[in-house]
Nucleic acid binder design. Sequence first.
DNA 1: CCATGTGAACCGGTTCACAGCG
DNA 2: CGCTGTGAACCGGTTCACATGG
Lengths: 222, 222
Amino acid sequence: MTQPRPRIPEATVARLAVYLRVLSGLADAGRSNVSSGELASAAGVNPAGLRKDLSHLGPCGVRGVGYEVATLRDRIARVLGVERSRACVLVGIGNLGTALAGYGGFGSRGFRFVGLFDAAPGRVGQRIGGQLVRPLAELDEVVAATAATIGVIATPADVAQSVCDRLTAAGVRSILNFAPMALAAPAEVDVRQVDLSVELQVLAFLGQQRGTAAPTTVEVTA
Amino acid sequence: MTQPRPRIPEATVARLAVYLRVLSGLADAGRSNVSSGELASAAGVNPAGLRKDLSHLGPCGVRGVGYEVATLRDRIARVLGVERSRACVLVGIGNLGTALAGYGGFGSRGFRFVGLFDAAPGRVGQRIGGQLVRPLAELDEVVAATAATIGVIATPADVAQSVCDRLTAAGVRSILNFAPMALAAPAEVDVRQVDLSVELQVLAFLGQQRGTAAPTTVEVTA
DNA sequence: CCATGTGAACCGGTTCACAGCG
DNA sequence: CGCTGTGAACCGGTTCACATGG
């Protein structure tokens, strides 16, 4: 290939996804142009960092002017691979699983759930957003038939590892895990962990530290 | 105070929360001792890093032996402030909000929801896990009465900023935001963003990069 | 002798300041 | 003249290797 393939840092990829969302909103609002400052403020990052992120895509703005909204949006979408639709399976259709299955934000980002699975007989057969909930026994079959490469785990912790094993055995290459437990998976499988109670715990700790650190709040260091 | 207050890094705090969960599980299973290697593997981190994390609490293991499970658990719990119960309010009782309100993992970590709020008249008056869903109009009142310091936003993106403004005005000092949108808040308020579709997007990008990078998979670099 | 605790090298990512260019 | 693009300093965090001590 003639592409330079510059290896975009993971932290940058995460922010590109945010810029993409902001740009889509701006485009829908009819805006045709933005500066790095405005885009950065809407995305919650610092302007220089945003420009550095975009530099990984090659020059894509006009000096002295800013960025063309639709062009930049399409460029980022292409890099992130939003065009291609990605088949995902979701295991664990409790409240969280239901929320994920029904979340509209995924569809517009190129993700579609091609299989919803649950172990509880009571859940199986229900419909969530037009999708049938299937028994876990059909996992292999569905992954094979749809070539799904992404699996999402929203089960209780005690079955998460066994679900992970089944997903990897079925051929899934990337796993997003919401169960509060570290998963062991083969090296060629990417696992990302989202841990809701850890987020709350960090927030509480920072708040408590901030609260107790300086009784008179600010200007203590000066 | 006689405490040294050594300023624990944020990344370490997040992992301490994970160690705490693993240690609680080990204690419940009757284990009284662990090595850094075993604990690290259960937490999904590298052993040296785990020891460095624990070094922020001062020496708490026995050389040549390992860590005493209950002691270490209690030490971490004290540092994270798990003992004190923290009042939280949750705004947005859709599928995600319902999942959060019903998630048992929070209670055991010292968090309790003292108010569930939604703008939709259809939601108000429902009970979720024994809690009544209230109208947003009662937010100030409940935050004041319960001294809640943490707010969780699980609303659609278009109202997230206004909810954030109301929470900060009511006196909330820490916000966990699940709406896919960057929030603007006063500097003294901590905001943490959890963005589900960004997680999926990063995962998909890494998978696509991995897939196209090395056709013969491994041993290319050797 | 073994696992902890830690100083020091290392690395990715962020911030800054300014050069480049419309 | 203004905003983009980027090299260079900076910083936090991770990894490594080994000293420490039961």
